[in-house]
Amino acid sequence: MLVSAGYLQAADLTLAQAIDGAFARNPELAAVRQDLGIADGERQQAGLMPNPELSWEVEDTRRATRTTTVMLSQALELGGKRGARIDVAERGQDTARLELERRTHELRATVTQAFYAAARAQTAVELAEQSRRLAERGLHVADGRVRAGQVSPIEATRAQVQLAETELQLRKARTQLADSQRQLARVTGTLEHEGQRLGFADLAPPSAPAAARLLAVLEQVPAMRLAEAQIRQREASLGSERAQRIPNLTVSLGSQYSREERERINVVGLSVPLPLFDRNQGNVLAASRRADQARDLRNAVELDLRTQTRSALDQWNNAASEAASFTGVILPAAQQAVDTATRGFEVGKFGFIDVLDAQRTLIDARSRYLDALASATEAQVAIERIYGDFGRVATHP
């Protein structure tokens, strides 16, 4: 067997199950979901009118000549302040929903990366076990030839060293597998996946989509829509600050009673601040600059996403081509070289140093093959962080 694949069994954890579990249990995503409720609360608060004020006032502390006034005052918001405040809160709701969508895409990509890292580690253990069996076979052959007096005992020593090296590699691979399983359990929000075998059909990623197809839908990805929503939110904040320049009008109605004259009279009052010094001009300027900043950030996000897309696709295609070379040519040839060298050593055509060289070449080729798969998966994950589910994007009309 050149490359190990995970065979699906009833107890195997699949990528789809890992993603579903992360969506249900990941604490960071759960925290982001709370932002929706926070935004709803802010929207509710933004629509409320100011509370009326009840005041009680006494003139003259002497009982016989005391005058008592009771007033009910209500501030009337002018200049569209309430509507502007509601607009800001609704833009905040939009931002919270888009941020949740973006973080959901990020979590899907993170789980995919962790899953395939654990899958590669699982495969690395299986390949290390194959390498150990090769070394054991080499040692068995070398011992047989030494006992027959056909080769020097040093050949058996070399075979023992090679076996010891493969056992070290196997222990290292098992340690990396345990660590990768813990990382997968962490991102899925559970500890129950530690030590569980993964089910996967193939480590090789699918073919990379065309750059033109991805870039054509760039405006629809959550990161871009979030940047646009933040512009609208900043513009709404600017409108709210401009509305604050209009003073509020306070209307007061009340009753005044004079003990000295034994007479009750009605009182009506109007009050309004005079915007002589503070016309909210500083906050308006700051909000205007924040809106300009959001537009600049939106342009920066688009440039960054375009660059990330092209770089990830180049990496994806190069790594996929490299992985295909390993599976199509390099690994089969390396395996054949090991078999040929071992059989040749058995019949005395080659020295054991040739067997060792062939075994090490095969082990190195397997390691570099897993590195190529890791590079391809990293690129795929980078695309999924931006565009979400790869299958949906790849088939987008």
Rank of each mutant, 00 (worst) to 15 (best):
D371L: 12
R245S: 09
L198N: 10
D202A: 08
A312Q: 06
T188Y: 05
A201E: 01
A229D: 00
N299L: 04
Q93R: 04
P209D: 02
I353Q: 10
D87S: 14
G195N: 10
G239A: 13
Q380D: 08
A300M: 03
A365I: 00
Q335N: 04
V329W: 03
D278R: 09
V251R: 03
F277H: 06
L184Q: 06
A119V: 07
Y369M: 04
L168V: 10
D296M: 13
A11V: 15
R232L: 07
S180N: 15
V125E: 02
A18L: 10
A210I: 03
R259V: 12
A84F: 08
A227D: 02
A223C: 02
V267L: 02
A208T: 03
A22F: 07
R225Y: 01
E228M: 04
L139F: 08
T14K: 12
R120P: 09
D357I: 04
N248S: 08
A337M: 03
G189C: 02
L215Y: 01
D179H: 09
R213C: 03
S240Y: 14
A287N: 02
Y7Q: 15
T377V: 11
V70I: 05
D389H: 04
A159C: 11
V217Q: 12
L98E: 00
S271A: 10
A118M: 14
Y387H: 08
T112L: 13
S325Q: 09
V329R: 05
P50N: 08
H105T: 02
S73W: 10
D389K: 03
T65S: 12
R242K: 15
L297V: 04
R295L: 01
F277D: 08
A118Y: 12
A124P: 15
G344N: 11
F345K: 06
A201M: 03
R264Y: 14
L98S: 00
E165M: 12
T327V: 00
T175I: 15
A22G: 11
S73D: 11
V141N: 09
L139Q: 09
L362T: 07
S375C: 14
A243F: 06
R108Y: 10
A142T: 07
T65N: 09
M1C: 04
L253I: 15
G391K: 05
T110Q: 05
Q169N: 12
L139Y: 12
D292S: 12
F277P: 03
G21D: 14
G37I: 07
D389F: 00
V267W: 02
A39E: 01
V221H: 05
D292H: 13
A109S: 02
G282H: 08
E261A: 15
M71D: 03
Q220F: 08
N317T: 14
R295N: 00
